[in-house]
Design a protein around this nucleic acid. Structure first.
Length: 651
RNA sequence: GGGGGUGUAGCUCAGUUGGUUAGAGCGCUGGCCUGUCACGCCAGAGGCCGCGGGUUCGAGUCCCGUCACUCCCGCCA
């Protein structure tokens, strides 16, 4: 199915210039060969065909789908049901484009037909059944953009199954409509080709993931939706417990503890297409409230084992749905600190070829006093170069500079190279020798430029990363034709919490520190503690963080120590993670896992900029479901039963 | 909680330094049309210019406030 569904799912090459519909409709059987039945189509397709072959009693609604008929069926009497996509009324002749999930078929009727008066009344999105003969179109009326374009149905009988009121949102042509309208009438929006195709692709991606995981020896288990509130992380969604006045369930932010308990229970390899709930504000790539993860956990594994299990699944599913784009053959492993130094972020977009470098030595004691003084003042300070191949014009450099100022930076120093020399104020100040040395280190040539960020890298790395991204985009250096994966490894176990002036977990308190208990006990100072790494990793694709994962800490004594370092005493740990701690005391296998975000994978594979384009029934940014009217008020009786009294804000 | 953008017909948008009766395209309704597939042609309906206040002889236009949507920051172990 895989290669073929790719072809069928490919939109652009087959995009119908006029109807905006795919010429190769979603999941339709191929005419010749006939084996090419994609999922979804097959079941009903087979049934229909069988019933048709029995001939005497045609199916109540259809003998074929709207994407199915070809020249081979010319002469047959068929029955199709679907939506009226478009009517073209020529007075003496009337065309109806009939649409269903599988495609589009043109039906035609003439005034002599007894059904003509009814046909004239048809409006967009009415649901109808059409019965009639398949006829070949004459050569000059064939529509080559439609898979069914060689035939049409001469309407014999016409039945209206369901009328449609005037549409708040047209399906045909997919004109731009406000998000609010699209969400309120989501069922109409979903009929549109683009969304319909995205949702189908999502379904196929999930089916593929599931199949790949099962083939790799993982078992799918369900974990509770009503569970206990967990102290760390995001805000919980709470559900009042009727049987326990004053107490609440929480929806799981992720099945994190459950999947570890599954390992401790001896099931060895777990996965789940897991819903996760976090009551945090939305972003374009983040649904408010709920999202899905491919949740994975494995026993008796090292970090390397997790990579070797997960990498083929991700690579495989991306290759399957990439529609020709290249997918990284072997995901490079980049230590966290190296990622920050080279890319200014822990989720680098490796399609961007720019790699930043430390060029402090070229500025130390140089005539460019601003940088030279910075380097003298504090040993931690550095100067980083952001090479900008082909960016060697004053106009571009100035544009970058004013962008930086708009970002609240003092500016963005630069040198651009032409006629064998470096130009710009920085080059003037450091002189030709240092300028040439810089150029050589960075491998730049005439027509290129380089930008500089200076100060304490901990403070400017993020901005430098943004500059790198911007340079890459503005200069068209980003190779859009690939999915570039990498593993980011060796995340620090702890980080400095500036707000509370203390050490805190940088990621997940359940991660195993590299070096184990010894490492935690041997660290003498905050600095040494902050240097401890964890078996904690991310997988990143095209600058999108798909997932975090870790080898878990399966030893209670390490857990106690780690929490102690982060400033939580024993009692807190026992109270908050009692179940987990208890489980660790009765024989826990070493284990680890990961949980790639499914919505983000689908977004990448659909080329969608917004998560609502790959979600069936999304909420808006205020976390409201405009179609169902959620959240909603509830009755006084419901509240009473739950022992809840509202205490609403005044305004 | 904070910042940016947007808000004129069902939709996409135009609307001059503030000046008569607020326009276009698409859609909708009606009529005509026998080969269209973004069909074509003719006619018509459709507006609290997001809402409230202010400045002015006069506000779609200027000012203040507010609301809605969206993007971002905070937040997302």
């Amino acid at each position: 199915m895989t290669e073929q569904s790719l072809t069928n799912g490919d939109s652009r090459a087959f995009f119908h210039p006029i109807t905006n519909r795919l010429s190769a409709p979603l999941c339709q059987p191929e005419p010749e060969g006939g084996v090419r039945e994609a999922q979804g189509a097959s079941a009903s397709g087979h049934t229909m065909q069988k019933q048709h072959d029995k001939a005497s009693e045609p199916h109540r609604y259809r003998t074929h789908t709207c994407g199915q008929l070809r020249k081979a069926q010319v002469g047959e009497t068929v029955k199709l049901s679907g939506w009226v996509h478009r009517v073209r009324d020529h007075g003496g002749l009337l065309f109806i484009d009939l649409r269903d999930h599988y495609g589009l078929t043109q039906c035609v009727i003439e005034p002599e037909s007894p059904e003509f008066p009814l046909a004239e009344q048809l409006r967009a999105e009415w649901v109808v059944t059409v019965e009639g003969q398949v006829v070949a179109r004459s050569d000059d009326t064939i529509n080559p953009d439609l898979p069914t374009g060689e035939i049409e149905i001469r309407i014999g009988k016409l039945e209206v199954l369901s009328k449609a009121a005037e549409l708040p949102l047209p399906v045909f042509g997919e004109p731009d409509y406000p998000e609010e309208t699209r969400l309120k009438y989501r069922f109409l929006d979903l009929r549109r080709e683009t969304l319909h195709r995205n949702i189908m692709k999502r379904s196929q991606i999930i089916a593929s993931l599931r199949q790949r995981m099962i083939e790799a020896g993982f078992f799918e288990f369900q974990t509770p939706i009503l569970t206990a509130s967990s102290p760390e992380g995001a805000r919980d969604f709470l559900v009042p417990a009727r049987l326990h006045p004053g107490k609440f369930y929480a929806l799981p932010q992720a099945p994190q503890q459950f999947k570890q308990l599954i390992m401790i229970a001896g099931f060895d390899r777990y996965f789940q297409i897991a819903p996760c709930f976090r009551d945090e504000d939305a972003r374009a790539d983040r649904s408010p409230g709920e999202f899905y993860q491919l949740d994975i956990e494995m026993s008796f594994v090292t970090q390397e084992d997790v990579f070797e299990a997960v990498e083929p699944v991700l690579r495989g599913v991306f290759e399957e749905f990439a529609e020709g784009k290249r997918v990284t053959a072997k995901f490079p492993r980049i230590p966290y600190r190296e990622a920050i130094k080279k890319y200014g972020t822990d989720k680098p977009d490796l399609r961007n070829p720019i790699i930043m470098e430390d060029v402090s030595e070229h500025f130390r004691g140089s005539g460019f006093k601003l940088f030279a003084n910075l380097l003298d003042k504090d040993a931690r300070n550095q100067v980083w170069a952001i090479p900008a191949p082909t960016g060697g014009s004053r106009a571009f450099c100035d544009r970058m500079n004013s962008w930086a100022q708009g970002e609240g930076q003092p500016g963005l120093g630069y040198i651009f190279f032409k006629d064998g020399a470096g130009s710009g104020p920085v080059a003037k100040n450091i002189g030709p020798k240092r300028t040439a040395a810089l150029r050589d280190q960075l491998g730049l040539k005439d027509g290129d430029a380089v930008f500089f960020a200076a100060g304490n890298p901990a403070k400017f790395a993020e901005f430098a990363g943004q500059a790198r991204t911007r340079v890459g985009r503005e200069l068209n250096l980003i190779d859009e034709d690939q999915f570039a994966f990498c593993w980011i490894v060796d995340f620090p176990m702890f980080e400095w919490d500036e707000e509370n002036k203390k050490i805190d977990f940088s990621h997940n308190p359940f991660s195993m520190p590299q070096g184990g208990l010894e490492a935690l006990e041997n660290a003498k100072s905050d600095t040494e503690l902050l240097d401890i790494l964890a078996y904690q990793y991310d997988v990143v694709c095209n600058g999108v963080e798909l997932s975090s994962g870790a080898i878990r800490n399966h030893k209670p004594e390490i857990m106690y120590k780690a929490f102690e370092i982060a400033g939580y005493d024993r009692a807190v740990l026992e109270q908050k993670f009692g179940g987990m701690l208890r489980a660790l005391q009765y024989g826990a296998p070493p284990h680890g896992g990961i949980a790639p975000g499914i919505d983000r994978m689908v977004m990448l594979l659909c080329g969608a900029q917004n998560i609502r384009e790959v979600t069936l029934f999304p909420m808006n940014q205020q976390a409201e479901d405009l179609m169902m009217g959620a959240p909603s008020e509830v009755s006084a009786a419901q509240l009473r039963e739950l022992h809840i009294r509202l205490n609403l804000p005044k305004s």
